[in-house]
Amino acid sequence: MEWFAGIGRSTMGMAAGLGRAAYLLFGSLVARPQPLKNFPLTIRQIYVVGVQSLLIIIVSGAFIGMVLALQAYTVLVDYGAEQSLGPMVALSLLRELGPVVTALLFAGRAGSALTAEIGLMKATEQLSSLEMMAVDPLRRVIAPRLWAGIISMPLLALIFSTVGILGGHAVGVDWLGVDSGSYWSVMQAAVDFNDDVMNGVIKSVVFAFVVTWIAVFKGYDAVPTSEGIGQATTQTVVYSSLAVLGLDFVLTALMFGTH
């Protein structure tokens, strides 16, 4: 009996958590949005989550593009097909690695920080004091952070893919000696703007929404103790990474699966 009670408890807890998360989303984005009034706050959050993530995004993008080119070259050169290095690097980055790795890095770099910040605001009762002053914390604190995440991550993913393709060019063309014109022309023949670039952007918008939502919800819902904040931060990274990887499979199957 105790076992069934445990299942029931955890199911009800999950349902209640989903409800609180949906309420948070509704309260911060849907119910009477004030985008103009909160615009300066959003700009500040874009600086925190977007601009400050630039360095890690650019460095990892460059290295992932370089290692992709290096690995692909060792296989392709056996078949005399090293001209296919360009589309190999570009398609991997635009379709999969750009959105996914950006989302994982974003969850680790910005998502955890959002959770910890909001969780500490809750623990030190800053959120309650805002409510005492008749300021809705959902709109003042949560909404700008959600918007900032949703705006920043697709931009970061675009920068990631571009830097990765340039990194692949540096290794493939400048170091391994693939012809530069072939690198670009074969890539241009293989990459379609709508099918590949825009689908990657759509993917990263979805990931941005999910990762930022999980991050702010886990912070807003954290147990207001130092232990609780630590746990919430861990959960943010774990849940958003799993959500991103799972969703990526679904989105890839929907977008590219039927060819």
Partner: peptide
């Protein structure tokens, strides 16, 4: 930051896709 992202999109559109 936004200008950099737009530049990245332009590069992807003009140099990579077309």
């Amino acid at each position: 930051f936004v200008a950099l992202a737009v530049a990245a999109l332009l590069m992807l559109a003009l140099k990579v896709a077309d």
